[in-house]
Simulated scan of single mutants.
Amino acid sequence: MSFTKELRRENEDVFQAIFDHPFVQGLGEGELPKEAVAHYVKADYEYLNTFLTLYGTAISQSDSREDITFFHNQIAFVLGDEIHPHRNLSDYAGTPYENLQGYPMPPTADHYRAHMKSVATEGLLGKTIAAMLPCPWTYDEIGKELKRRFSPEPDHPFYEWIEFYADDSIAETTGYMMKRLDEEAERASPEDRRKMKEAFRKSCQLELAFWEMSYSLEEWPAGKETAR
């Protein structure tokens, strides 16, 4: 069994909890509180800014032009393409996308950012990929699951969001990162493989927590959010 198949089997509980979360189910059903959707976009915009820098870190840890090209293209993808599902959510929330940018991250999103950056500073590409992979992997499966289960038509409020993440381009991103993680794990020490598993598991847990953070409108215990 490949390393990534082990990871998927060991984290089935978290994946299933993500599929069952009321925010994710609401995306499929086409009905969510608008304030929760806006809260998600605010946090995810900043989260993706961190993801951009992590792709840059992955480039610095890469030895092959193939990897460098892949991570470079992913930066372009986030900047140029991943704004489309955000705009779909912003339209639903009734707020211009530009008005949902520049807010401080809620505690869970901030924790997720700190976790990935901490793993990436260890300097091993395999660990960096392990911490990043749950994001595209869970969204790939969410998109396909929602499309299969709800069969949304173009008039569905979240049709564009579901179609975007059910698209093969997300699966291709996930597939490449899985392949590279399998290769890195193959030559890693047992201790580094253990750390990769820990990083992956924590990121999966934080993906689930991100959905809950959005649905519950999580904020810091004191102080109001203010856009920069």
Rank of each mutant, 00 (worst) to 15 (best):
L208D: 06
E207C: 06
F71N: 10
D44K: 13
Q16D: 07
P157Q: 09
G223R: 13
V24Y: 02
E10M: 10
E218Y: 01
L146G: 07
E163T: 09
P154D: 09
E145G: 01
D91W: 06
G28L: 12
K117T: 06
G143L: 03
G175W: 02
A185T: 07
I162P: 00
G94C: 09
I18N: 01
T138E: 04
T174A: 02
V119R: 06
V78W: 08
H115F: 11
E153C: 01
N99W: 10
G94P: 07
G175L: 04
Y55G: 04
D44M: 08
M132E: 08
K195I: 05
M105C: 08
E207N: 09
Q25G: 04
N49K: 15
G26A: 12
V24I: 15
Q74V: 04
R201M: 01
M105S: 10
D20S: 14
P221E: 11
T138D: 02
Q74D: 06
R149F: 00
Y47H: 13
L54V: 10
W220D: 03
S216N: 05
R193V: 02
P33N: 12
E145Q: 11
F164K: 06
E141S: 08
L79A: 15
I59A: 07
G102C: 06
D13I: 07
E172R: 11
K5F: 04
S151F: 02
H39S: 08
K202Q: 14
E186M: 05
E35R: 14
E225G: 02
D13A: 15
E122A: 09
E183T: 08
Y176D: 05
